[in-house]
Amino acid sequence: MSADFLQFLFSGITQGACYALVGLGFSIIYNASQVINFAQGEFVMIAGMAAVGLIDAGAPFVLALAAGVALTVVVGVALEKFAIEPARNASVVTLIIITIGASIFLRGAAELLGGRGFRSMPAFSGNEPIVIGGAALLPQSLWVLGVTVVIIFALGRFFNATMHGKAMLATAYNPVMAQLMGINTRLVLSLSFALAALLGGIAGVLIAPLSLTYSTVGVMLGLKGFCAAILGGLGKPMGAIAGGLLVGVSEAMTAGYLSSAYKDAVAFVIILVVLVVLPGGLFGGRSVERV
């Protein structure tokens, strides 16, 4: 029984960490622009597809991973420069629709360049499962968890101890005031897309050995990541992480103990309940209506 529980927990935490990384991207862009970037899942896909393509073409493993992530950052910045920035005077809803359009474009482009099949990336440290308390854990899951922890600390440091990070936070709190204080809010917007793409890209290469990679792999991950971000309180990085883990673990526990048929439903019910009780999300605090 406890071995089963551990197995479900491993699955849930690994999945949750993936959702958290995607959810973080949503939060970072939302903070800088109030925009919900629905191409976030595609960042995950691009990194995975590019890295696998390069590995198949004979590139060294680590270099291929780095190039995949780098390409994703380039795409993220390009998305901001050529699609979001020209329309920055448009309403937030328009910008969100632009990101949906961009996600469809990116999926199409990936299919043209990377083919239509699905492919796997070799795991970083083999496929031999590690048995802990009767439950089997893949080394790749440890990579996912470990890197997520590193990212959480790095992000914390970035936001609290660097000028750019503080500028991003300031812009999130009050864009007009931030601008008056001499913060280049346009640069902050670019930076937020770069950072979100970086996180998506890292998530992409981390989970490609588990999820495999194909042009539509980001759709569902994007949706779950979005749920994570909403659940934790949109715009709260720590909230996205907690939300991701909560969604992942509750999915796995439902599939394990209740019925796999209700797996997705339970995750969404939790989101509904949390949002009814705490409209701002777990970490959102009380929202104050301004008049």
Partner: peptide, 20 residues
Amino acid sequence: DETHGAGDTDMTPQLTRIKG
């Protein structure tokens, strides 16, 4: 008799149930 959802990337919980 277990199922998984669209876009799922890990079926170990379902398989653990089946194993049992």
